[in-house]
């Protein structure tokens, strides 16, 4: 390096620099090319493998892809008059699904607040245990909801509570991480001020930190709520309560109840879109764009 900068003026120096640059570009291109080839190989071999282990092949399936939606649509349009009544019928289970999502976001969010405050440097109540709380959140995030839900269904029986606890557990881990990232940017001066007048830890957090970070927390929690509605619908399908369970029943009944399937599809779609819009509206309002 030193040599090339010294010989900058001479033509040999320029050539040297150019050669070095071209060599570097070539290596970079080669690495890029190799990565691309590896990626394409992974994708195609993965695709072929998945195709071979699937019950129905890809090319057979792609031709049938509109068959099931077609059947549902045909039956739903034949019984279109039933749809409003069916939607009313399924509204309570939809409410349950939304309630599961809201309750789990709330419980998980409250837990995440405590966990995040305990695992942020500078704010933690027990600074030695920061690592422990972080690992705890990592594990909470890593456990898929279905695992906890199925175990709890075995113990508590069906219903909304297993799903609620399962989603809340995961939410606590996921939000805890995001919250603690927010906390790290909080100004410590109010906390110091409160400490100087003898406030205890809970008071310092509540009065010094929470007002600073609450809008960001709320915005993450809203995003999570959106995700949790989807999760609670899926968990209903796999195990317990809510609209997912009704969908599973109507779906496994097969032809003859596709009007119910269609009604649930529509309800679910409208709900998800509604809450997506609602949460993105409030998120934009909360995070500075107002």
């Amino acid at each position: 390096m030193a040599d090339t900068t010294l010989n900058q003026g001479s033509p040999e120096g320029t050539a040297e620099i150019r050669d070095a640059y071209m060599a570097m570009t070539r290596t970079k291109r080669m690495y890029g090319g190799i990565m691309l080839v590896v990626f394409i190989a992974l994708m195609t071999s993965g695709f072929m493998l998945a195709d071979s282990r699937n019950a129905g092949g890809f090319w057979d399936g792609i031709l049938n892809i509109f068959q099931f939606p077609g059947e549902v649509l045909a039956e739903a349009s034949a019984k279109a008059a039933n749809l409003p009544a069916l939607m009313v019928k399924f509204f309570p289970s939809l409410l349950e699904t939304v309630n599961i999502a809201a309750a789990s976001t709330l419980v998980g969010g409250l837990l995440a607040i405590v966990l995040s405050l305990l695992s942020t440097r500078g704010l933690a109540r027990f600074p030695r245990l920061i690592g422990l709380f972080r690992r705890m959140m990592d594990i909470m995030r890593a456990v898929p909801e279905i695992v906890i839900a199925l175990v709890l269904i075995f113990i508590l029986g069906g219903g909304p509570v297993p799903a609620m606890i399962a989603i809340a557990f995961h939410t606590a881990g996921a939000l805890g991480k995001l919250f603690s990232e927010v906390n790290e940017n909080a100004d410590l001066k109010p906390v110091e001020g409160l400490a100087s007048v003898g406030a205890n830890w809970a008071q310092r957090m509540l009065l010094g930190v929470v007002p600073q970070v609450a809008p960001n927390w709320l915005s993450y929690a809203l995003l999570r709520f959106e995700i949790n509605i989807r999760a609670s619908a899926i968990l209903g399908f796999v195990g317990s309560g809510g609209i997912g369970y009704d969908l599973k029943n109507a779906f496994s009944w097969g032809q003859g109840r596709y009007d119910e399937v269609a009604a649930i599809f529509i309800l679910l779609f409208l709900t998800i879109v509604f809450f997506d819009q609602l949460s993105s509206h409030y998120r934009n309002k909360l995070v500075g764009k107002a």
Binding site: F47, A50, G61, N64, Q67, F68
Partner: peptide, 9 residues
Amino acid sequence: RAFGPGPMT
């Protein structure tokens, strides 16, 4: 419904 059970689905 279209592809049957498996990783591809």
